[in-house]
Amino acid sequence: MADRSASITSQFTGAGLGRSSLIFWALVGGLALLGGLLGDSYVRHIFILVFIWCIVIASWDLILGYAGIFNYAQLVFFAFGAYGSAMLSIYAGLTPLLAIGAAALVGAGIGVLVAVPSLRLKGEYVALFTFAVHLALPPLIQQGRAIGMGGNTGLLGIPWLNLFGFQVSSIDKLTWYWVSLAFGAVCVYLIYFVILRGRMGLAFIAMRDAETFAQAIGVNEYKYKLLAFVVSAVFTAVAGGIYAHYTSVVTPKVLGTEFFLMAMVMLAIGGMGRFPGAIAGVFTVVIGNELLRSFDDYRLLLLGVAVVVTVIFFPEGVAGAFKPKPPEKAE
């Protein structure tokens, strides 16, 4: 018998990470240049939204697509990040960057709060519970008027981002383009290249593919599912914080149907659990949505049709359509 204790090379042990990181950052560099070339500030605004959405959808993909947990409270994490960061900077006077960091902690706490009951539930009941949390939040925000959450009209006058003494106003789209690209790129990189290509990623995939088998080979289901919620919530809350300081307004609308539908459509169109599917979904849907703006009333309908078409013809998302077909199984 061989006595070498060689190990298995895999993307989960860092194989190929250098090369794919290089490609990733080259693309990010390309996008950074593009920001300077785009003259139109409205187009920049659209890209800023794309970059913020990328964080939300990558986080959702982590828990739903990779860990296979039917979590539908993603925008709850976003809302807590946005409100948390806004309130900390308005009332506690935290500088926005610090407030966004604090929002990440708020996100972690909310992640745990949503996770603990969810972990006692099976599959589809997790979906029901988490969606119920989503539905229950807007009325709670109404009540939160008493503690300065602004009720229906939301919070106005959220301080501008302060980058090392330099105030970034919402109309300074070029700086915001780069700031949101930097945040988006770092978060997406951490999610897909660090977390999901490490031990945690393999645990998530194991639980999703074969739950009992995963437990039998030592995966601590409770620990990794809890981690999935917390990690997903932390990144999403950061996205919420950035969004709040960019728009300088947060209203309960962030939990509205349109936002929720958009997020669902991004994941459905892009395909879950297979990088870069979900990210491609974000670009497709946000940009598509803008191109369809002239159709106004029919926009949501067209989005719906897009989902139906992808679900029927590309059940694994657009990314799945490019996957090589597996050869016929030998009997």
Partner: peptide
Amino acid sequence: LAGQMFGSE
């Protein structure tokens, strides 16, 4: 690898 990784854990 998963067996090795999580078994050790």
